[in-house]
Simulated scan of single mutants.
Amino acid sequence: MDPVSLLLVGGLALILVMQFSRVRKQQRVVKETQAAVEVGADVLTAAGMVATVVSVDDATLTLRGPDGTLSRWVRGAVIRVLPDTDPASSRYQAPAGTTAGTEPATPTDAVDDDGNPRPQD
């Protein structure tokens, strides 16, 4: 074989190896996401719905939508498990270096009685 043919075959082999490794990584991420789905978790579906997991079966999930309705979804529809933002929850992890949940996010003197921001002086 001449050097150009060897270079082409080597390049093709490299592209195939890189493609297979990327696919394996994506499969691993999907498997880890599916394993992280548990009752009480907030999830994002492929359709863009943010919901809370009510029950988990082998192939399906029951989700409670923002308006309180229940719906059944296949596990594959969940693309992400969202971080828990409720400090009272056992799943909550405060960001590093913060004291989350100990003080209000907005100082109470910065908003009026209706929760609207006060004008800056």
Score class of each variant (00 low, 15 high):
Pro95Glu: 03
Ala96Gln: 09
Arg64Lys: 15
Pro66Lys: 12
Glu103Leu: 12
Gly101His: 06
Asp42Ser: 15
Val9Leu: 12
Gly11Phe: 04
Gly10Trp: 10
Asn116Lys: 09
Pro66Trp: 04
Val37Arg: 01
Val37Cys: 06
Leu70Pro: 02
Gln19Arg: 12
Asp86Cys: 01
Arg28Phe: 09
Gly48Arg: 04
Gln26Ile: 10
Ala100His: 06
Asp58Tyr: 05
Ala47Gly: 04
Glu38Arg: 07
Met18Gln: 12
Gly40Cys: 15
Asp2Asn: 14
Leu12Gln: 13
Gly65Asp: 09
Val111Glu: 04
Glu38Ile: 11
Arg28Gln: 14
Gln34Glu: 15
Phe20Leu: 02
Pro104Ala: 11
Ala94Met: 00
Val37Asp: 02
Asn116Asp: 09
Thr98Lys: 02
Thr33Ser: 09
Ala59Ile: 06
Val74His: 14
Ala13Trp: 02
Ala100Cys: 08
Val29Thr: 02
Leu63His: 00
Thr62Ile: 14
Thr85Glu: 07
Met18Asp: 14
Ser55His: 05
Ser5Tyr: 01
Arg24Glu: 08
Ala88Asp: 11
Pro95Ala: 02
Asp57Glu: 15
Lys31Gln: 10
Leu44Tyr: 00
Ala105Ile: 14
Leu70Gln: 15
Thr98His: 02
Asp84Trp: 05
Arg22Lys: 10
Gln34Tyr: 11
Arg80Gly: 00
Lys31His: 01
Gln120Met: 12
Thr106Tyr: 14
Thr52Asn: 09
Lys31Glu: 08
Asp112Cys: 04
Leu82Asp: 06
Glu38Leu: 09
Val37Gln: 08
Val81Met: 01
Val29Lys: 00
Met18Gly: 10
Val56Lys: 13
Leu70Thr: 15
Thr62Arg: 12
Pro83Arg: 07
Ser90Trp: 01
Ala46Tyr: 01
Asp121Val: 13
Gly115Leu: 10
Ser89Phe: 00
Ala36His: 07
Thr60Arg: 09
Asp58Ser: 11
Gly68Gln: 10
Glu103Thr: 14
Ser71Asp: 14
Val78Asn: 05
Asp67Tyr: 00
Ala47His: 02
Gly68Asn: 13
Val50Cys: 00
Ile79Gly: 10
Ala105Arg: 12
Thr85Val: 13
Glu32Cys: 14
Met18Pro: 00
Arg28Val: 14
Thr106Glu: 07
Pro119Phe: 02
Ile15Phe: 10
Thr106Lys: 05
Leu8Tyr: 02
Ala110Asn: 09
Pro117Cys: 07
Val43Pro: 06
Arg72Gln: 15
Ser5Gln: 10
Val23Ile: 15
Val50Ala: 03
Thr106Arg: 11
Asp86Asn: 10
Asp2His: 08
Thr85Phe: 01
Asp42Gln: 13
Ala47Glu: 03
Val78Thr: 07
Ile15Val: 14
Ile15Trp: 11
Val54Asp: 03
Asn116His: 07
Val30Asn: 12
Asp2Tyr: 00
Val56Thr: 09
Thr85Trp: 01
